[in-house]
Amino acid sequence: MASSITAENLRKAYGKKEVLRGVSFCIEQGETFALLGVNGAGKTTTIEIIENMRRADSGGVTVNGILGVQLQSTSLPETITSSEAMRLFCAWHKVPYRGDLLERFDMAGEYLNMIYAALSTGRKRRLHLALALCHNPSILILDEPTAGLDVEGRHALHDEIRKLKSEGVSILMATHDMSEAETLCDRIAILRGGVITKLGSPLELTASSDIQSKITVKTRGSAEYKTFSAINTADFLTEFLLKVKAENDEITDLRVERADIEDIFLEAAGGAK
């Protein structure tokens, strides 16, 4: 499968501070890829280099496709209406007016002629996403797409991202939201201090972790729940089942709490949950 974006050994310093120290990854066609990291980890710089908004000191980026971009801190003139903004963006991209996108992102009706300053944060995000898609990009870059949104707004935007993914759009998103990355993305790269410290699918990342799983079991023969910790959950459970069988006992309840992306992120960042 061809790569939509390939970043090779990106390096960038602001003065003496090295923000990126050799970041490499590739995003396959139709893949949703997350860059996770704390503030200052280099997410936005990486994204801006890919968007051609910033120049890397060394390394290179290859983009195979048309880019659509939603910046982290983005804005429009306060008194422009949603329909005017769409008309403007479509005119510059030489495509017909995309009222369908405004409808799709629930920006039609009363919102169509509402000025930008009067829109809520959620509506502004929807509008920016619609504008980023006006020229049918095959690759979408989203920088903190759900920052500042309420739960409802976040869910609505997640649904749209899933729809775009099902349409085959490659998506690169930078986010602080672990659950967002875990539920929406095929692969996640954790950036720390300008380098990728972990890269893989959410399952691969959690499986490769050294963080112990918490296993809570109740057997017919015991009055209370017992809690165990194990790094290799499969080995522990196999052994535990054999032991229970050997004792002629029976498991009545079992709960396994594995490390999630937040644990992996904190492990990679050297913190604790």
Binding site: M53, V69, L71, T74, S75, P77, W92
Partner: peptide, 17 residues
């Protein structure tokens, strides 16, 4: 204001000169 509020950057990112 356009520069301070990031409107110029938004236009540039969208491919508007």
């Amino acid at each position: 204001k356009a520069r301070e509020q990031g409107i110029l950057e938004a236009y540039r990112a969208a491919g508007i000169p």
